[in-house]
């Protein structure tokens, strides 16, 4: 096509003689880069030079950044983190399924399904309104306290249920907002083809809605990865609890720093990825 040769022509010209605007923009860019560099260097300098000058720095360093304690506890922390990963791995799909079911409950339009809709509303209101740790305590100790035999009273089962209850409420709201974001003309098009409401939801609305809310749900699941640690309140020795044990054995907070590093190693890439997806989606919309 002529289009490509045209573009090529433009590229060649700009390679040899930049336009006035390009010169101007390049100048602005150099200036911003310089300012960014200077300000970054000064902040880093302040952090690494000024903070250690503080009178209590040595004590803080010994209590929080203790190399000996770090090396002694880090492998144990990594091992304990496997439990977090496992709890996350079995909770996440359950949360996704339950969240979707609740979102569909809230979207039920038939009058016969009104109780379902009411249930969906009550569910999301209640479980979004409660602190996770409270739900974990109440369900994790409360339900087994009713006299369930082992292994049905396991804190893993009921702690997972607590996580599923709370997080599926959030996921349900996110999915519902995704459903609402699908333009009604899509439903109209499906209806005009004779598709049932059910098929319209399943084949037309949901696939688009869920795709739209992937980044928002990613953020929820990053939060879940952190909240898995709350299960330690009812017994399981995951990384946060293991760090607490080490802290008390060594009378030193360094294991918490180790645990924080392990969390960050996982959540930072996940967060960046979620942001990337979000940006991509925003670009696609405009």
């Amino acid at each position: 096509m002529d289009e490509t040769s045209l573009q090529k022509g433009v590229a060649e010209r700009s390679a040899t003689t930049p336009t006035r605007r390009e010169v101007y923009e390049a100048g602005i860019r150099r200036r911003s880069n310089r300012i960014a560099l200077i300000s970054t260097v000064s902040v880093v300098l302040a952090l690494f030079v000024l903070v250690p000058l503080a009178p209590g720095w040595e004590a803080v360093q010994r209590a929080f950044f203790n190399g000996r304690v770090f090396t002694a506890t880090f492998p144990g922390l990594l091992e304990a983190f496997l439990l977090n990963v496992m709890i996350f791995a079995w909770s996440a799909p359950l949360i996704a399924i339950t969240g979707l079911a609740i979102a569909l409950c809230r979207d039920a339009r038939a009058p016969a399904l009104f109780p379902l809709r009411l249930f969906g509303i009550a569910y999301t209101d209640i479980f979004r309104g409660l602190p996770v740790v409270l739900v974990i305590y109440i369900i994790g100790f409360g339900i087994p306290g009713l006299g369930l035999p082992r292994p049905w009273n396991s804190p893993y089962i009921w702690g997972t249920l607590a996580l599923v209850l709370v997080y599926s409420a959030y996921v349900a709201e996110v999915i519902r907002s995704g459903i609402d974001s699908i333009h009604h003309s899509q439903r109209a098009a499906a209806a005009s083809l004779g598709l049932s409401d059910r098929d319209t939801m399943r084949y037309v609305v949901l696939p688009q809605a869920i795709r739209n809310v992937v980044p928002a749900n990613m953020n929820l699941f990053i939060a879940l990865q952190k909240d898995v640690a709350l299960l330690s309140f009812i017994g399981p020795v995951e990384i946060f609890r293991q760090a607490g044990v080490y802290k008390s054995l060594y009378a030193n907070f360094t294991p918490y720093v180790g645990a924080a590093l392990i969390f960050l190693a996982l959540t930072i890439p996940a967060t960046r990825y979620a942001d990337y997806l979000m940006n991509k989606q925003n670009k696609a919309r405009t």
Binding site: A189, A191, S192, Y203
Partner: peptide, 19 residues
């Protein structure tokens, strides 16, 4: 639904399913 199968409609904004 049976009626809609016999009477098709095409919209101004196409309304194709983008996915």
């Amino acid at each position: 639904q049976p009626v809609r199968q016999q009477i098709g409609i095409v919209f101004q904004s196409y309304n194709l399913f983008p996915h």
